[in-house]
Amino acid sequence: MPAVLSVRVSTEDFDPGAELAALEALPSGAVASFTGLVRNDGGLEALHLDHYPGMTQRQIEEIVAQAAARWPLLGVTVIHRHGTMKVGDRIVFVGTVSSHRVAALEACAFLIDWLKVSAPFWKQELRRDGSRGWVEAQGADDARAEKWR
């Protein structure tokens, strides 16, 4: 595991600037991050994210452990929200710290790719016309995650 690890699963919003500042305070040379937002797909008003409370935190920590086994990471922050989020709201944050940019950037991409396919969250779309529907998993996401094998 990285020396400094923070994994938070919560309904609360977060401040990416504050998260980055905390990661930049570690003695390192490179910080990379990804912030995922609710995309303004046609007719979408909000997303509701369901999750498996007993499993989510540990599953994310296992994905981080895999990243830490591959790249020399000094710090990792993963924040994943559940509950209801409007278009433009933040859903997920991944921040990685390493001595060099390649490790930080690659580990960040690995983490978000694997979160998408192996963290137990499910998105439901709430549309402006009042209808709702569960988002279908994308084969392209599986393919992206598999590329890291």
């Binding site: 995922g36 994210l49 999750h51 498996y52 007993g54 499993m55 994943h80 859903i91 997920v92 978000i112 979160l115 998408k116 396919v117 192996s118 963290a119 137990p120 969250f121 499910w122 998105k123 569960w134 988002v135 279908e136 998993a137 996401d141």
Partner: peptide
Amino acid sequence: SELAIFPPVTGG
């Protein structure tokens, strides 16, 4: 002691 059944995950 615990089983969960669900669709493929769609987080991230």
